[in-house]
Design a protein around this nucleic acid. Structure first.
Lengths: 241, 241
DNA sequence: CGATAATTTGATGTGGCTCAACCTACGTGG
DNA sequence: CCACGTAGGTTGAGCCACATCAAATTATCG
């Protein structure tokens, strides 16, 4: 079962057995990625899409001075660059954060799915729009939140996504990101990330160390960052604080 | 010809006459919207999607204190909330900026298109992913650019989009946004927007007044904001500075 | 165990915010 | 056709959140 986490927590029940079979048939073999490996470079034409089986990946853009901004962080069960199928080339880079396992689906196979399986096609489309919804929330966060809320909100999102696929129990979860990574995700400097993490720790809300996050008070974290998981389009009951 | 601007400048030639007919058949009658009218409210289930024939619209989210962040600005030829079709409800509000003309397409008709026209379906999917690509650029802009580049980059994007549908000649175009709107789009205060606009004026790069933007030196503007229109997925030759 | 990456802390600078006033354009009604 | 109200735009003064720079401390791993 390669796609056992795909859309888990989100309309998974609309995937028929036939749909799942079609996906499994379309997928290539498992591939392992070393940590911090660039998989796709901006602008290069792409002919397959990548599904993340295990590990964490990210998408990012660099400016002229080499300053990096993450635009997405991906967890197991995510179709990392399914948007590359209609787009044909990507406007950003994609890389692993830690050691990852992926499978790749050739776009030619997706063409067959588009013709034969409109229901599955619509769900694939839906999954790319989830990313767009998260993009919007990131815009909101960067445009209107101060540093501590930006960081906190980011953790809320990752926690909710991981919970949906069974990788968080609401009080702790793995996260192989450095403070530099967090800074690149939240539009701030690593130094300031460090100070904000200290504040979250001192306020007994949460703590991050050794690639693992501990949440002491998820309700307080939600409150602090005005977190409302509606934009993640999760099935009811998932991601309550 | 309702959809004469749809995907103009972007793979328009992949739309067959049959595809266009199917779209025209699916669309309801013209509808006129007064300026500053909310069309869709966050969270409400949607059963149709809106295509913008004329005017400017925007999508936005508000925080607890009522501070607003725009997440997209739409121009004629945009399918404003096509993403509502797979998503079924929206995570943000949609409103007109000035007086707009729209048509609406029931989602039931899009279901028929998904079954009968995989090629058109893929182009519709593509058009929603254009918005996602713009979202990513907004994230980048908010996370890594200082105020003057944020504003300038926003103008570059709007100009390029308008040029693709024939509404800008590269040196001037209509834009019915107030400085407050610009502030909400660029994650800053109206006061600071005003100062940055003054700087752009004094540096003889561009000027905005009476709902109209004049660009004195587009190449300089591109240079200032590191603008690269690649993420707009325009056909070659459009949007050169 | 030494090299290297990551985290932590302090001191100082500044871009953009806040608050407050004033100015200008424009639509409406007397 | 002018008086007035209102929305939008402009400017100044002071302040603060976050950046920058620099250095020390602590993990991590071959």
């Amino acid at each position: 079962m390669i796609f056992d986490k795909f859309l888990l927590g989100r309309r998974r029940n609309q995937l028929t057995d036939g749909d799942l079979d079609a996906l499994e048939q379309a997928a290539g073999p498992f591939r392992d990625l070393a940590p911090r490996t660039t998989l796709i470079t901006q602008g290069t034409p792409v002919t397959f899409s990548t599904y993340l089986v295990d590990g964490f990946m990210c998408r990012y853009m660099d400016d002229r001075k080499g300053e990096r901004q993450l635009v997405a962080v991906h967890v197991p069960g995510d179709f990392v660059d399914l948007h590359g199928y209609p787009l044909k080339r990507l406007d950003h880079d994609i890389a692993s954060i830690n050691a990852c396992r992926i499978v790749q689906v050739p776009h030619a196979r997706l063409d067959e799915i588009m013709i034969a399986r409109p229901g599955l096609s619509k769900l694939l489309w839906f999954s790319t729009l989830l990313d767009a919804a998260m993009h919007r929330e990131w815009i909101f966060r960067l445009g209107r939140f101060e540093a501590i809320k930006r960081i906190g909100h980011f953790f809320c999102e990752i926690e909710a996504k991981l919970r949906a696929v069974g990788l968080s129990d609401g009080s702790s979860f793995p996260l192989p990101m450095t403070q530099m990574d967090l800074a690149e995700a939240c539009g701030m400097t690593p130094v300031h990330v460090n100070r904000m993490l200290r504040e979250l720790r001192e306020r007994k809300i949460m703590q991050i160390r050794a690639n693992s996050v501990k949440i002491f008070d998820l309700a307080a974290l939600y409150r602090l960052c005005e977190f409302d998981p509606g934009y993640l389009y999760l099935d009811d009951g998932i991601a309550q604080p």
